[in-house]
Design a protein around this nucleic acid. Structure first.
Lengths: 241, 241
DNA sequence: CAAAATCCTTGATCTGGATCAAATCGCCTC
DNA sequence: GAGGCGATTTGATCCAGATCAAGGATTTTG
Protein backbone atom coordinates (compact mmCIF):
# COMPACT_ATOMS: atom_id res chain seq x y z
CA UNK A 1 0.00 0.00 0.00
CA UNK A 2 2.75 2.44 1.00
CA UNK A 3 4.85 1.41 -1.97
CA UNK A 4 1.88 1.71 -4.26
CA UNK A 5 1.32 5.28 -3.10
CA UNK A 6 4.93 6.24 -3.77
CA UNK A 7 4.69 4.71 -7.20
CA UNK A 8 1.58 6.65 -7.98
CA UNK A 9 3.14 9.94 -6.88
CA UNK A 10 6.27 9.37 -8.92
CA UNK A 11 4.22 8.62 -11.96
CA UNK A 12 2.20 11.76 -11.47
CA UNK A 13 5.36 13.86 -11.23
CA UNK A 14 6.54 12.52 -14.56
CA UNK A 15 3.06 12.96 -15.89
CA UNK A 16 3.51 16.63 -15.14
CA UNK A 17 6.76 16.62 -17.14
CA UNK A 18 5.09 15.02 -20.12
CA UNK A 19 2.54 17.79 -20.20
CA UNK A 20 5.21 20.47 -19.81
CA UNK A 21 5.38 23.07 -22.58
CA UNK A 22 9.17 22.97 -22.51
CA UNK A 23 9.54 19.18 -22.25
CA UNK A 24 11.73 18.88 -25.35
CA UNK A 25 13.57 22.21 -25.18
CA UNK A 26 14.42 22.72 -21.50
CA UNK A 27 17.51 21.32 -19.81
CA UNK A 28 15.32 18.40 -18.71
CA UNK A 29 15.38 17.05 -22.25
CA UNK A 30 18.92 15.74 -21.69
CA UNK A 31 18.03 13.80 -18.54
CA UNK A 32 17.49 10.04 -18.65
CA UNK A 33 14.40 8.69 -16.93
CA UNK A 34 15.62 8.14 -13.35
CA UNK A 35 17.32 11.55 -13.17
CA UNK A 36 14.27 13.26 -14.60
CA UNK A 37 12.21 11.68 -11.88
CA UNK A 38 14.65 12.89 -9.25
CA UNK A 39 14.27 16.43 -10.55
CA UNK A 40 10.53 16.20 -10.99
CA UNK A 41 10.19 15.10 -7.37
CA UNK A 42 11.55 18.38 -6.06
CA UNK A 43 9.92 20.64 -8.63
CA UNK A 44 7.29 23.30 -7.97
CA UNK A 45 5.26 24.68 -10.83
CA UNK A 46 4.25 28.31 -10.46
CA UNK A 47 2.45 30.80 -12.67
CA UNK A 48 2.87 34.57 -12.81
CA UNK A 49 0.85 37.40 -14.29
CA UNK A 50 2.43 40.07 -16.52
CA UNK A 51 4.41 42.46 -14.31
CA UNK A 52 4.97 39.95 -11.48
CA UNK A 53 8.51 39.59 -10.16
CA UNK A 54 9.97 36.09 -10.17
CA UNK A 55 13.14 37.33 -8.50
CA UNK A 56 14.23 40.59 -6.90
CA UNK A 57 17.85 41.76 -7.23
CA UNK A 58 19.57 40.58 -4.08
CA UNK A 59 17.22 37.63 -3.44
CA UNK A 60 19.01 34.65 -1.99
CA UNK A 61 20.06 32.29 -4.72
CA UNK A 62 18.27 29.25 -3.34
CA UNK A 63 16.20 28.19 -6.34
CA UNK A 64 16.77 27.71 -10.04
CA UNK A 65 14.05 27.86 -12.70
CA UNK A 66 12.92 26.58 -16.02
CA UNK A 67 10.70 28.95 -17.92
CA UNK A 68 8.03 26.60 -19.25
CA UNK A 69 5.68 29.17 -20.74
CA UNK A 70 5.80 32.88 -21.60
CA UNK A 71 8.53 35.52 -21.58
CA UNK A 72 10.49 37.16 -18.77
CA UNK A 73 12.92 40.07 -18.57
CA UNK A 74 16.19 40.26 -16.59
CA UNK A 75 17.26 43.67 -15.27
CA UNK A 76 19.62 45.50 -12.96
CA UNK A 77 18.94 48.75 -11.12
CA UNK A 78 21.37 51.54 -10.25
CA UNK A 79 20.93 53.41 -6.98
CA UNK A 80 19.24 56.43 -8.56
CA UNK A 81 16.65 54.41 -10.45
CA UNK A 82 18.42 53.99 -13.77
CA UNK A 83 17.69 50.51 -15.06
CA UNK A 84 19.47 48.21 -17.49
CA UNK A 85 17.48 45.40 -19.03
CA UNK A 86 19.97 42.54 -19.45
CA UNK A 87 17.93 40.26 -21.64
CA UNK A 88 14.85 38.17 -22.12
CA UNK A 89 14.09 34.51 -21.45
CA UNK A 90 11.62 32.41 -23.38
CA UNK A 91 9.91 29.05 -23.03
CA UNK A 92 12.60 26.40 -22.57
CA UNK A 93 15.21 28.77 -21.10
CA UNK A 94 17.00 28.07 -17.86
CA UNK A 95 17.42 30.64 -15.11
CA UNK A 96 20.01 29.98 -12.44
CA UNK A 97 23.50 30.43 -13.80
CA UNK A 98 25.01 32.73 -11.28
CA UNK A 99 28.23 32.62 -9.38
CA UNK A 100 27.41 34.42 -6.15
CA UNK A 101 25.24 33.70 -3.13
CA UNK A 102 22.39 35.83 -4.37
CA UNK A 103 20.78 36.93 -7.59
CA UNK A 104 22.59 39.89 -9.15
CA UNK A 105 19.51 40.91 -11.14
CA UNK A 106 15.76 41.00 -10.98
CA UNK A 107 13.43 38.93 -13.14
CA UNK A 108 9.98 40.11 -14.18
CA UNK A 109 7.21 38.41 -16.16
CA UNK A 110 6.26 40.20 -19.40
CA UNK A 111 3.45 37.83 -20.33
CA UNK A 112 1.63 35.17 -18.39
CA UNK A 113 4.49 32.94 -17.32
CA UNK A 114 4.76 29.42 -16.07
CA UNK A 115 7.94 28.33 -14.35
CA UNK A 116 9.19 25.08 -12.90
CA UNK A 117 11.30 25.77 -9.83
CA UNK A 118 13.90 23.56 -8.12
CA UNK A 119 15.63 24.12 -4.78
CA UNK A 120 19.30 24.83 -5.43
CA UNK A 121 20.74 22.14 -3.17
CA UNK A 122 19.17 19.01 -4.71
CA UNK A 123 19.61 20.57 -8.15
CA UNK A 124 23.30 21.00 -7.48
CA UNK A 125 23.54 17.42 -6.20
CA UNK A 126 21.93 16.12 -9.38
CA UNK A 127 24.27 18.34 -11.38
CA UNK A 128 27.35 16.81 -9.77
CA UNK A 129 26.02 13.30 -10.41
CA UNK A 130 24.98 13.94 -14.00
CA UNK A 131 27.80 15.10 -16.28
CA UNK A 132 25.39 15.30 -19.21
CA UNK A 133 23.41 17.96 -17.37
CA UNK A 134 26.54 19.90 -16.47
CA UNK A 135 27.56 19.75 -20.12
CA UNK A 136 24.17 21.13 -21.14
CA UNK A 137 24.43 24.01 -18.68
CA UNK A 138 27.94 24.82 -19.89
CA UNK A 139 26.70 24.90 -23.46
CA UNK A 140 23.84 27.20 -22.51
CA UNK A 141 26.18 29.42 -20.52
CA UNK A 142 28.46 29.72 -23.56
CA UNK A 143 25.50 30.69 -25.72
CA UNK A 144 24.38 33.30 -23.22
CA UNK A 145 27.90 34.66 -23.08
CA UNK A 146 28.03 34.92 -26.85
CA UNK A 147 24.70 36.69 -26.89
CA UNK A 148 25.81 39.06 -24.10
CA UNK A 149 28.93 39.93 -26.11
CA UNK A 150 26.81 40.67 -29.14
CA UNK A 151 24.72 42.98 -26.99
CA UNK A 152 27.83 44.70 -25.59
CA UNK A 153 28.72 45.57 -29.17
CA UNK A 154 25.26 46.95 -29.74
CA UNK A 155 25.36 49.10 -26.60
CA UNK A 156 28.92 50.27 -27.08
CA UNK A 157 29.00 51.01 -30.77
CA UNK A 158 25.67 50.98 -32.59
CA UNK A 159 23.38 53.90 -33.46
CA UNK A 160 19.75 54.15 -32.36
CA UNK A 161 18.42 52.83 -35.69
CA UNK A 162 20.87 49.93 -35.65
CA UNK A 163 19.91 49.08 -32.08
CA UNK A 164 16.17 49.00 -32.69
CA UNK A 165 16.54 47.04 -35.94
CA UNK A 166 18.83 44.49 -34.25
CA UNK A 167 16.34 44.20 -31.42
CA UNK A 168 13.35 43.48 -33.66
CA UNK A 169 15.29 40.81 -35.54
CA UNK A 170 16.57 39.29 -32.32
CA UNK A 171 13.13 39.00 -30.74
CA UNK A 172 11.64 37.54 -33.91
CA UNK A 173 14.42 34.95 -34.11
CA UNK A 174 14.04 33.93 -30.49
CA UNK A 175 10.27 33.67 -30.89
CA UNK A 176 10.61 31.69 -34.10
CA UNK A 177 12.56 29.08 -32.12
CA UNK A 178 9.65 28.61 -29.71
CA UNK A 179 7.01 28.52 -32.40
CA UNK A 180 6.54 32.03 -33.77
CA UNK A 181 6.15 32.99 -37.42
CA UNK A 182 9.42 34.01 -39.12
CA UNK A 183 8.66 37.58 -40.20
CA UNK A 184 6.60 38.46 -37.18
CA UNK A 185 7.65 39.66 -33.75
CA UNK A 186 5.45 39.92 -30.71
CA UNK A 187 6.57 42.66 -28.31
CA UNK A 188 4.95 42.24 -24.90
CA UNK A 189 7.30 44.78 -23.29
CA UNK A 190 6.83 48.56 -23.17
CA UNK A 191 8.87 51.12 -25.12
CA UNK A 192 10.54 51.96 -21.82
CA UNK A 193 11.62 48.31 -21.39
CA UNK A 194 13.04 48.31 -24.92
CA UNK A 195 14.84 51.58 -24.20
CA UNK A 196 16.39 50.17 -21.04
CA UNK A 197 17.51 47.13 -23.02
CA UNK A 198 18.95 49.18 -25.87
CA UNK A 199 20.52 52.03 -23.91
CA UNK A 200 18.01 54.52 -25.32
CA UNK A 201 15.03 56.49 -24.03
CA UNK A 202 11.36 55.63 -24.53
CA UNK A 203 11.02 58.56 -26.92
CA UNK A 204 13.95 57.54 -29.11
CA UNK A 205 12.67 53.96 -29.40
CA UNK A 206 9.24 55.28 -30.34
CA UNK A 207 10.69 57.68 -32.93
CA UNK A 208 12.79 54.95 -34.58
CA UNK A 209 9.85 52.55 -34.72
CA UNK A 210 7.64 55.30 -36.17
CA UNK A 211 10.28 56.01 -38.77
CA UNK A 212 10.60 52.32 -39.77
CA UNK A 213 6.84 52.20 -40.06
CA UNK A 214 6.77 55.37 -42.18
CA UNK A 215 9.37 53.83 -44.52
CA UNK A 216 7.20 50.69 -44.79
CA UNK A 217 9.97 48.49 -43.40
CA UNK A 218 7.69 47.22 -40.68
CA UNK A 219 3.98 47.23 -39.99
CA UNK A 220 2.52 47.54 -36.48
CA UNK A 221 -0.23 45.08 -35.62
CA UNK A 222 -2.51 44.99 -32.62
CA UNK A 223 -1.32 43.68 -29.23
CA UNK A 224 2.33 44.60 -29.85
CA UNK A 225 2.75 42.60 -33.04
CA UNK A 226 5.26 43.72 -35.67
CA UNK A 227 5.39 42.40 -39.22
CA UNK A 228 8.60 42.70 -41.22
CA UNK A 229 7.65 44.00 -44.66
CA UNK A 230 11.25 44.32 -45.85
CA UNK A 231 13.42 42.12 -43.68
CA UNK A 232 16.49 42.71 -45.85
CA UNK A 233 16.33 46.45 -45.12
CA UNK A 234 15.97 45.70 -41.45
CA UNK A 235 19.03 43.48 -41.58
CA UNK A 236 20.97 46.17 -43.39
CA UNK A 237 20.13 48.81 -40.82
CA UNK A 238 20.80 46.36 -38.00
CA UNK A 239 24.48 46.36 -38.69
CA UNK A 240 27.38 47.39 -40.79
CA UNK A 241 28.99 44.17 -39.48
CA UNK B 1 64.58 2.09 -23.07
CA UNK B 2 61.44 3.10 -24.94
CA UNK B 3 59.47 3.22 -21.72
CA UNK B 4 62.20 5.22 -20.05
CA UNK B 5 61.98 7.81 -22.83
CA UNK B 6 58.23 8.13 -22.45
CA UNK B 7 58.65 8.47 -18.71
CA UNK B 8 61.19 11.22 -19.16
CA UNK B 9 58.96 13.15 -21.55
CA UNK B 10 55.97 12.87 -19.32
CA UNK B 11 57.98 14.10 -16.40
CA UNK B 12 59.25 17.01 -18.45
CA UNK B 13 55.68 17.95 -19.42
CA UNK B 14 54.66 18.11 -15.80
CA UNK B 15 57.89 19.90 -15.04
CA UNK B 16 56.64 22.55 -17.42
CA UNK B 17 53.37 22.74 -15.45
CA UNK B 18 55.21 23.18 -12.17
CA UNK B 19 57.05 26.16 -13.57
CA UNK B 20 53.88 27.62 -15.02
CA UNK B 21 52.97 31.11 -13.81
CA UNK B 22 49.31 30.13 -13.59
CA UNK B 23 49.83 26.71 -12.02
CA UNK B 24 47.60 27.43 -9.03
CA UNK B 25 45.06 29.75 -10.64
CA UNK B 26 44.33 28.25 -14.05
CA UNK B 27 41.73 25.57 -14.70
CA UNK B 28 44.59 23.05 -14.41
CA UNK B 29 44.63 23.56 -10.66
CA UNK B 30 41.52 21.39 -10.32
CA UNK B 31 42.99 18.45 -12.22
CA UNK B 32 44.36 15.43 -10.38
CA UNK B 33 47.75 14.17 -11.43
CA UNK B 34 46.91 11.72 -14.24
CA UNK B 35 44.50 14.13 -15.92
CA UNK B 36 46.99 16.97 -15.64
CA UNK B 37 49.52 14.80 -17.41
CA UNK B 38 47.01 14.04 -20.16
CA UNK B 39 46.49 17.73 -20.70
CA UNK B 40 50.17 18.60 -20.44
CA UNK B 41 50.96 16.02 -23.10
CA UNK B 42 48.96 17.87 -25.72
CA UNK B 43 49.89 21.39 -24.63
CA UNK B 44 51.88 23.92 -26.63
CA UNK B 45 53.39 26.92 -24.91
CA UNK B 46 53.55 30.05 -27.01
CA UNK B 47 54.63 33.62 -26.36
CA UNK B 48 53.36 36.79 -27.99
CA UNK B 49 54.63 40.36 -28.15
CA UNK B 50 52.35 43.32 -27.37
CA UNK B 51 50.03 43.86 -30.32
CA UNK B 52 50.20 40.26 -31.59
CA UNK B 53 46.91 38.55 -32.36
CA UNK B 54 46.28 35.23 -30.61
CA UNK B 55 43.01 34.79 -32.49
CA UNK B 56 41.31 36.58 -35.35
CA UNK B 57 37.51 36.92 -35.41
CA UNK B 58 36.28 34.02 -37.51
CA UNK B 59 39.26 31.74 -36.82
CA UNK B 60 38.27 28.12 -36.58
CA UNK B 61 37.62 27.16 -32.99
CA UNK B 62 40.14 24.32 -32.88
CA UNK B 63 42.20 25.32 -29.86
CA UNK B 64 41.55 26.53 -26.35
CA UNK B 65 44.02 28.53 -24.25
CA UNK B 66 45.20 29.27 -20.79
CA UNK B 67 46.73 32.69 -20.37
CA UNK B 68 49.77 31.92 -18.25
CA UNK B 69 51.40 35.34 -18.30
CA UNK B 70 50.40 38.88 -19.30
CA UNK B 71 47.17 40.49 -20.40
CA UNK B 72 45.04 40.12 -23.54
CA UNK B 73 42.05 41.95 -24.95
CA UNK B 74 38.93 40.44 -26.60
CA UNK B 75 37.21 42.48 -29.30
CA UNK B 76 34.62 42.42 -32.06
CA UNK B 77 34.67 44.47 -35.26
CA UNK B 78 31.72 45.90 -37.20
CA UNK B 79 31.93 46.05 -40.99
CA UNK B 80 32.79 49.74 -41.13
CA UNK B 81 35.67 49.50 -38.65
CA UNK B 82 33.87 50.31 -35.42
CA UNK B 83 35.25 48.13 -32.70
CA UNK B 84 33.91 46.91 -29.38
CA UNK B 85 36.39 45.70 -26.80
CA UNK B 86 34.58 42.90 -24.95
CA UNK B 87 36.95 42.44 -22.05
CA UNK B 88 40.39 41.59 -20.82
CA UNK B 89 41.98 38.32 -19.73
CA UNK B 90 44.75 38.00 -17.17
CA UNK B 91 47.19 35.37 -15.97
CA UNK B 92 45.19 32.29 -14.97
CA UNK B 93 42.21 33.02 -17.22
CA UNK B 94 40.81 30.48 -19.65
CA UNK B 95 39.98 31.27 -23.24
CA UNK B 96 37.76 28.87 -25.14
CA UNK B 97 34.19 29.13 -23.94
CA UNK B 98 32.37 29.55 -27.18
CA UNK B 99 29.35 27.85 -28.59
CA UNK B 100 29.91 28.01 -32.33
CA UNK B 101 32.36 26.45 -34.75
CA UNK B 102 34.59 29.49 -34.84
CA UNK B 103 35.72 32.32 -32.61
CA UNK B 104 33.20 35.16 -32.56
CA UNK B 105 35.86 37.67 -31.49
CA UNK B 106 39.51 38.52 -31.90
CA UNK B 107 42.11 38.30 -29.15
CA UNK B 108 45.14 40.57 -28.99
CA UNK B 109 48.10 40.68 -26.61
CA UNK B 110 48.44 43.95 -24.67
CA UNK B 111 51.65 43.01 -22.89
CA UNK B 112 54.14 40.23 -23.45
CA UNK B 113 51.92 37.19 -23.17
CA UNK B 114 52.51 33.53 -22.58
CA UNK B 115 49.77 31.08 -23.37
CA UNK B 116 49.36 27.34 -23.05
CA UNK B 117 47.33 26.01 -25.94
CA UNK B 118 45.39 22.73 -26.24
CA UNK B 119 43.76 21.24 -29.33
CA UNK B 120 40.02 21.33 -28.89
CA UNK B 121 39.35 17.64 -29.51
CA UNK B 122 41.50 16.06 -26.76
CA UNK B 123 40.52 18.92 -24.44
CA UNK B 124 36.88 18.15 -25.03
CA UNK B 125 37.53 14.44 -24.45
CA UNK B 126 39.21 15.20 -21.14
CA UNK B 127 36.30 17.50 -20.28
CA UNK B 128 33.76 14.73 -20.80
CA UNK B 129 35.80 12.37 -18.65
CA UNK B 130 36.46 14.86 -15.86
CA UNK B 131 33.32 16.28 -14.26
CA UNK B 132 35.45 18.38 -11.91
CA UNK B 133 36.88 20.22 -14.91
CA UNK B 134 33.44 20.75 -16.43
CA UNK B 135 32.27 22.12 -13.10
CA UNK B 136 35.20 24.54 -13.05
CA UNK B 137 34.45 25.77 -16.55
CA UNK B 138 30.79 26.24 -15.69
CA UNK B 139 31.77 28.28 -12.66
CA UNK B 140 34.09 30.44 -14.75
CA UNK B 141 31.42 30.85 -17.42
CA UNK B 142 28.98 32.03 -14.76
CA UNK B 143 31.50 34.56 -13.49
CA UNK B 144 32.15 35.85 -16.99
CA UNK B 145 28.43 36.14 -17.56
CA UNK B 146 28.04 38.12 -14.36
CA UNK B 147 30.86 40.40 -15.37
CA UNK B 148 29.43 40.83 -18.87
CA UNK B 149 26.08 41.83 -17.34
CA UNK B 150 27.81 44.38 -15.14
CA UNK B 151 29.42 45.79 -18.25
CA UNK B 152 26.10 45.89 -20.12
CA UNK B 153 24.83 48.13 -17.33
CA UNK B 154 27.87 50.36 -17.68
CA UNK B 155 27.46 50.68 -21.45
CA UNK B 156 23.72 51.10 -21.39
CA UNK B 157 23.26 53.47 -18.48
CA UNK B 158 26.42 55.05 -17.05
CA UNK B 159 27.95 58.46 -17.80
CA UNK B 160 31.48 58.96 -19.08
CA UNK B 161 32.90 59.71 -15.61
CA UNK B 162 31.14 56.67 -14.14
CA UNK B 163 32.48 54.49 -16.93
CA UNK B 164 36.09 55.53 -16.57
CA UNK B 165 35.99 55.32 -12.77
CA UNK B 166 34.43 51.83 -12.92
CA UNK B 167 37.07 50.81 -15.42
CA UNK B 168 40.01 51.92 -13.28
CA UNK B 169 38.64 50.10 -10.25
CA UNK B 170 37.89 46.99 -12.28
CA UNK B 171 41.39 46.77 -13.73
CA UNK B 172 43.00 47.36 -10.33
CA UNK B 173 40.86 44.62 -8.77
CA UNK B 174 41.66 42.12 -11.49
CA UNK B 175 45.36 42.94 -11.25
CA UNK B 176 45.29 42.70 -7.46
CA UNK B 177 44.08 39.11 -7.85
CA UNK B 178 47.15 38.20 -9.90
CA UNK B 179 49.61 39.99 -7.66
CA UNK B 180 49.21 43.74 -8.16
CA UNK B 181 49.18 46.39 -5.43
CA UNK B 182 45.67 47.32 -4.22
CA UNK B 183 45.56 51.03 -5.00
CA UNK B 184 47.52 50.81 -8.20
CA UNK B 185 46.42 49.97 -11.73
CA UNK B 186 48.66 49.25 -14.65
CA UNK B 187 47.09 50.18 -17.98
CA UNK B 188 48.95 48.59 -20.86
CA UNK B 189 46.20 49.45 -23.36
CA UNK B 190 45.82 52.71 -25.28
CA UNK B 191 43.18 55.36 -24.65
CA UNK B 192 41.52 54.15 -27.87
CA UNK B 193 41.31 50.61 -26.45
CA UNK B 194 39.73 51.96 -23.27
CA UNK B 195 37.29 54.01 -25.35
CA UNK B 196 36.27 50.95 -27.36
CA UNK B 197 35.73 49.04 -24.12
CA UNK B 198 33.72 51.83 -22.51
CA UNK B 199 31.68 52.99 -25.49
CA UNK B 200 33.49 56.34 -25.56
CA UNK B 201 36.02 58.08 -27.80
CA UNK B 202 39.74 58.39 -27.18
CA UNK B 203 39.30 62.09 -26.46
CA UNK B 204 36.57 61.61 -23.89
CA UNK B 205 38.59 58.97 -22.03
CA UNK B 206 41.57 61.30 -22.02
CA UNK B 207 39.52 64.23 -20.79
CA UNK B 208 37.98 62.25 -17.94
CA UNK B 209 41.36 60.91 -16.86
CA UNK B 210 42.83 64.42 -16.99
CA UNK B 211 39.96 65.69 -14.90
CA UNK B 212 40.39 62.95 -12.27
CA UNK B 213 44.08 63.82 -12.16
CA UNK B 214 43.33 67.54 -11.81
CA UNK B 215 41.01 66.76 -8.88
CA UNK B 216 43.80 64.69 -7.28
CA UNK B 217 41.65 61.55 -7.29
CA UNK B 218 44.31 59.69 -9.24
CA UNK B 219 47.96 60.19 -10.07
CA UNK B 220 49.50 59.11 -13.37
CA UNK B 221 52.78 57.21 -13.12
CA UNK B 222 55.18 56.22 -15.86
CA UNK B 223 54.47 53.24 -18.13
CA UNK B 224 50.72 53.52 -17.81
CA UNK B 225 50.58 53.23 -14.03
CA UNK B 226 47.73 54.88 -12.11
CA UNK B 227 47.70 55.40 -8.35
CA UNK B 228 44.39 55.90 -6.54
CA UNK B 229 44.83 58.85 -4.19
CA UNK B 230 41.20 58.87 -3.08
CA UNK B 231 39.69 55.50 -3.82
CA UNK B 232 36.45 56.32 -2.02
CA UNK B 233 35.82 59.21 -4.42
CA UNK B 234 36.53 56.92 -7.33
CA UNK B 235 34.05 54.39 -5.98
CA UNK B 236 31.46 57.12 -5.56
CA UNK B 237 31.85 58.35 -9.11
CA UNK B 238 31.89 54.75 -10.38
CA UNK B 239 28.25 54.27 -9.56
CA UNK B 240 25.11 55.48 -8.04
CA UNK B 241 24.30 51.79 -7.54
C1' DC C 1 70.49 60.62 -31.15
C1' DA C 2 67.69 62.27 -34.88
C1' DA C 3 63.51 61.32 -37.18
C1' DA C 4 59.34 58.98 -37.74
C1' DA C 5 55.49 57.14 -35.89
C1' DT C 6 52.23 56.66 -32.29
C1' DC C 7 49.84 58.10 -28.64
C1' DC C 8 47.99 61.54 -25.69
C1' DT C 9 46.09 65.95 -24.53
C1' DT C 10 43.53 70.08 -25.13
C1' DG C 11 40.57 73.34 -27.58
C1' DA C 12 36.58 74.59 -30.68
C1' DT C 13 32.51 73.16 -32.67
C1' DC C 14 28.79 70.07 -33.84
C1' DT C 15 25.13 66.65 -33.29
C1' DG C 16 22.52 62.35 -32.02
C1' DG C 17 19.91 61.32 -28.74
C1' DA C 18 18.28 63.12 -24.13
C1' DT C 19 15.13 65.97 -21.86
C1' DC C 20 11.03 68.60 -21.35
C1' DA C 21 6.30 69.16 -22.73
C1' DA C 22 1.85 68.09 -24.71
C1' DA C 23 -1.49 65.66 -27.08
C1' DT C 24 -3.46 61.23 -28.39
C1' DC C 25 -4.21 56.39 -28.08
C1' DG C 26 -5.56 52.04 -25.81
C1' DC C 27 -7.27 49.61 -22.37
C1' DC C 28 -9.37 48.64 -18.03
C1' DT C 29 -13.06 49.45 -14.76
C1' DC C 30 -17.35 50.37 -13.46
C1' DG D 1 -19.66 53.66 -23.16
C1' DA D 2 -17.82 57.36 -19.94
C1' DG D 3 -13.97 58.18 -17.26
C1' DG D 4 -9.30 57.42 -15.89
C1' DC D 5 -4.69 56.01 -16.26
C1' DG D 6 -0.65 54.39 -18.19
C1' DA D 7 1.63 53.90 -22.71
C1' DT D 8 2.76 55.97 -26.96
C1' DT D 9 3.65 59.46 -30.16
C1' DT D 10 5.27 63.84 -31.68
C1' DG D 11 7.33 68.40 -31.22
C1' DA D 12 10.74 71.83 -29.27
C1' DT D 13 14.87 72.49 -27.03
C1' DC D 14 19.15 71.15 -24.81
C1' DC D 15 23.52 69.01 -23.75
C1' DA D 16 27.01 65.16 -22.99
C1' DG D 17 29.93 63.41 -25.60
C1' DA D 18 31.37 63.07 -30.63
C1' DT D 19 33.94 65.10 -34.16
C1' DC D 20 37.36 68.04 -36.09
C1' DA D 21 41.78 70.12 -35.49
C1' DA D 22 46.37 71.09 -33.49
C1' DG D 23 50.09 70.55 -30.58
C1' DG D 24 52.93 67.99 -27.34
C1' DA D 25 54.75 63.78 -25.29
C1' DT D 26 56.65 59.16 -25.69
C1' DT D 27 58.22 55.33 -27.92
C1' DT D 28 60.37 53.07 -31.91
C1' DT D 29 63.52 52.75 -35.61
C1' DG D 30 67.53 53.37 -38.20
Amino acid sequence: MHVATLEREAVSCLEMCNQCGARTTSICSVLPHPELRQLADCATVKTYAPGDLLIREGDTFDHVFNITEGMVMLFKLLGDGRRQVLGFLFKGDFLGLTGGVDYQFGVQALTSVQSCRFPRVPFRRLLLETPRLEEELLSRASDELMSAREHLTLLGRKTAVERVSSFLLYIADREAKVGGAPDLAFLPMTRADMGDFLGLTTETVSRVISSLKRQQVIQLLEHGGVRFLRRADLETSAEAA
